[in-house]
């Protein structure tokens, strides 16, 4: 295994014997664990902030989606009613128009016969 360290630190370690370096590693394992905990803490802090922001965003989107869904359901109901109303109204108007056309035709026919 190869470890690259800053030049200044390397110079300091160079002054130590192999036994002293192994001892340094052994004696500092606990400190290394604390450092790993601190690194994990920093990572978790960052993750927490990201999650809090994501949560806010989802809550906002969910609220907007719920509002949209509710309104869309009301609109659907309203458009159904209007569609039915217009269908009936158009049917009555078409009958009225046909009646008018029939009356007009009869009138024209009567006039032609008279002439």
């Amino acid at each position: 295994m190869e470890i690259i360290i800053p030049k200044e630190r390397f110079k300091e370690l160079k002054k130590l014997s192999e036994v002293e370096i192994v001892k340094l590693i052994e004696e500092n394992l606990e400190k290394a664990e604390e450092t790993l905990k601190a690194e994990r803490e920093a990572f978790l802090h960052e993750k927490k902030i990201k999650l809090e922001n994501k949560l806010k965003e989802i809550e906002k989107q969910l609220e907007a989606l719920e509002r949209f869904y509710e309104k869309a359901m009301q609109d659907r109901e309203f458009m159904h009613e209007m569609s039915e109303k217009l269908r009936k109204e158009n049917m009555a108007l078409r009958e009225e128009l046909e009646e008018k056309n029939r009356a007009l035709k009869n009138k024209t026919r009567e006039r032609t016969w008279k002439d």
Binding site: M1, N28, A32, A38
Partner: peptide
């Protein structure tokens, strides 16, 4: 801690220790 042995050794050899807050 889900890190490599190299990472741990680097912390020790550089002496860049930290304490959790």
């Amino acid at each position: 801690y889900g890190v490599s042995e190299g990472h741990i050794l680097r912390i020790i050899l550089t002496g860049e220790f930290r304490i959790p807050e």
